[in-house]
């Protein structure tokens, strides 16, 4: 799997794509593959405040419940309502199925996240352990 280079990644397997002051957040292909069939995505309401590194929502597969962690701090401006009825879209296209958009509080937080190449290395190690 090639990870898109137009975004940054967390070690908790979220991605964030920055456009000016706005960030779009989803989970990685590696994450959807590890989870298996995704049946439920719970995102916060528009207007909620996210803190970098803190849990902001939940994704559930048939088997497991997992927390979603915010790649950056900010205010939620939009959520992908489609995922409430079609959570399996995340399995089909994890890098295209965004979960929420937020207005970034401190864009410099992004500097500590992984590049596509570094993330790819990170998951290769995690998968190989």
């Amino acid at each position: 799997m090639a990870y898109p280079t137009d975004r940054k990644y967390t070690k908790e397997h979220e991605w964030i794509q920055v456009n000016g002051n706005s960030g779009t957040v989803g989970i990685t292909d590696y994450a959807q593959q590890s989870l298996g069939d995704i049946v439920f995505v719970e995102t916060p309401k528009v207007g909620s405040e996210l803190t970098a590194g803190k849990a902001f929502g939940t994704v559930e597969s048939v088997k497991a419940v997992s927390d979603l962690y915010a790649p950056a701090s900010g205010t939620v401006t939009e959520v992908n309502a489609e995922l409430a009825t079609s959570p399996e879209n995340v399995n089909k296209d994890a890098h295209g199925s965004w979960m929420l958009k937020l207005s970034l509080k401190n864009p410099s937080e992004l500097n500590s996240l992984l590049s596509a190449a570094d993330y790819e290395k990170f998951v290769a190690e995690e998968a190989g352990h």
Partner: peptide, 8 residues
């Protein structure tokens, strides 16, 4: 994302 079912 972090799974609650991971082996400790």
């Amino acid at each position: 994302m972090s799974s609650v079912e991971a082996t400790p």
